[in-house]
Nucleic acid binder design. Structure first.
Lengths: 350, 350
DNA sequence: ATACTGATTGCACACGTGTGCAATCGCAAC
DNA sequence: GTTGCGATTGCACACGTGTGCAATCAGTAT
């Protein structure tokens, strides 16, 4: 009665009620027929299915979600949509979610904890079945608001060291740093620097730890000036690359022959400075990055770096989420990085 | 009666019914109070709002969507989540959508028209209010299935030349090509090549058109061998960069002094080949790309290219979508590219 | 005192789907 | 013929929210 939706008529949004009317049965029967319930006669099922196809019926997932108390969606929060790191994580999540028939909400937090919390709350309003947060900056300040959210949360590469109650997928940061510094050591360097970023709390601390660890085991006493952690207050709105560009000279002055950079962007910045100052890489200075972003492969010289299994991290996070959704126990997960040797590292000149 | 949801009790999912019971009013009153309706006494409104806060009430957007026949969501289909081009488009869409209070579904089509159609249908099942498709490959084969989808669709940088019924946001491809080739001409080149990709139907044809156009206006008769369009059949699974790497020699043999590449990836590949063969860029060969992806800035030499206003395209697409959602007339939109001169172009040797 | 007005509230239905339970029917066993 | 059983179907409610309409109540004008 509401809208004309005859079998041959104008194709509008047809509901199971419309189909029921056209078939001369109740909407319950239609519902059962379309869901292949055994509680419906085979011939009527065929008839209803044919009718549904003819009328262009497309089930309403919203209504289904309301009834089922499960939406078949997950929310993904990333700090930036344009950062290739998160793009790969996103792709990994999408792959597994798509395979499981789940749809994915995405939103950016722009590295702002308040905004991050708002996005999570929006997702919760939409009744997503789970939330995956990449590089979360949520601190204990948000505990109260988080407790109102009754949704499983999985965190990828958490930036803070709080909220341990989340399930976490993380990279073995210490191991990654060991690979990088170990490689430099093996090649022959002894005066190795570290250029770190203070606004990356957790990962920076761990990478610094790995750096020190390797040097200590090699019975080297690193000059404190070799490890430069740019404090958060001095970073401000600056891009990582700019940091690398502007801060490399400090380390050069300290007399290092190789620098392990917090990430590839920092390393690329450092590389720019070398090019500008006529410092040969790797002839006079070796550089190692972290992440293996696309750019690392195409700069000159191509960058030696530590590859994070980014897509794998997304896939793993989503797999853990699926476990949680199926009421199976969730678990934490630590993934192994991989050293990618390219052309930005070589033995020291002497 | 279903679950215990007392004011001070365990905070579970509270519905307006639970609040109504706790406040001793009907759920209608609660609904009105929370929506600031004038049809409710101010004091009871205050009381109900306080109670809602205390009980940790979070409105159910699913139920709201069902009732309102509008979900407050849009779906974004991209061919690849890891391509930085789409990442920027996504960010633009997210920005405007977020500002309008809409949430964004995202899924990848992996350049497969069938998959693209499936994703759109999934979005429709979830009753998104609109769909934005980046680099759509939908042909007329899908017309029938598309007609069942009663959802506004906006297309960004459509790849095919069919389905003109969609609202489209596109780049002025011809103008972009004119900028690139015009720049080479102005710098002094006369034997200018074009390295195009046959699997990008529409944009490749337009860029080729712009290339020919500029040369014709300059009264140059280009050797047909200077324009190399790699046919789709020969591309297969190859990355754009690999194409550039492997196909540049063909153009060099044809005797060009400058090459306008279909995009930056192709140009980066070409640059690799030059480096490998000891061909100086821009000394012996000038290269121009298209897109201005991140890498373009960091390769050596930094790439002269045509910048697409990618985020702007996403923002525009979402703005057009908002118009359509508000029943305002939609419109097509063509955005202007911008020439970015860096160091990969210079006057020809002689 | 009565009627009218405005403010406030609840009832009942709607959105589209799924499902427990009862009802109906046909058929076979006693 | 009655009882029982399995197959099939419809009724009615649920999910959580929003809203038209009627009902109730207090206050004011007549």
């Amino acid at each position: 009665m509401t809208r004309a939706c005859e079998p041959g008529g104008p194709v509008g949004r047809a509901s199971i009620k419309d189909i029921a009317q056209a078939a001369g049965v109740s909407h319950s029967t239609v519902s059962r027929a379309l869901n292949d319930s055994t509680l419906v006669n085979e011939s009527t099922r065929e008839r209803i299915k044919a009718l549904a196809l003819e009328m262009g019926y497309i089930p309403n997932a919203v209504a289904r979600s309301l009834k089922a108390q499960r939406s078949g969606t997950v929310g993904l929060v990333v700090t930036s949509l344009t950062d290739p790191f998160f793009a790969d994580v996103m792709a990994g999540v999408d792959e597994i979610a798509g395979r499981a028939g789940l749809s994915m909400f995405v939103a950016a937090s722009h590295n702002d904890p308040d905004r991050e919390m708002e996005v999570i709350e929006t997702f919760h309003r939409r009744r997503v079945d789970g939330v995956i947060v990449a590089a979360s900056r949520l601190s204990n300040r948000y505990r109260e608001r988080l407790e109102r959210i009754h949704v499983p949360i999985v965190v990828v590469n958490q930036h803070t060291e709080e909220n341990p109650e989340f399930h976490a997928v993380a990279l073995d940061e210490v191991g990654g740093a060991r690979l990088a510094v170990g490689h430099l050591l093996e090649v022959g360097h002894r005066r190795i620097g570290y250029l770190g970023l203070g606004n990356r709390q957790r990962s920076n601390r761990l990478r610094l730890g790995g750096y020190r660890d390797v040097l200590r085991r090699a019975d080297l006493v690193p000059d404190p000036a070799w490890a430069l952690i740019v404090p958060e207050s001095e970073i401000g709105e600056q891009d990582d690359t700019e940091i690398g560009e502007s801060r490399l000279p400090d380390l050069l002055e300290a007399g290092v022959t190789a620098v392990f950079c917090y990430n590839d962007r920092v390393a690329v910045g450092a590389l720019q400075t070398c090019r500008a100052h006529g410092i040969a890489v790797p002839g006079e200075l070796s550089l190692v990055g972290f992440d293996d972003i696309d750019v690392a492969r195409w700069v000159d010289p191509p960058l030696t770096t530590v590859r994070q299994p980014r897509a794998e991290m997304g896939r793993t996070a989503m797999s853990v989420m699926l476990d949680l959704l199926e009421e199976r126990p969730g678990h934490d997960c630590m993934l192994a990085p991989e050293l990618v040797v390219r052309a930005s590292t070589a033995p020291p000149r002497r």
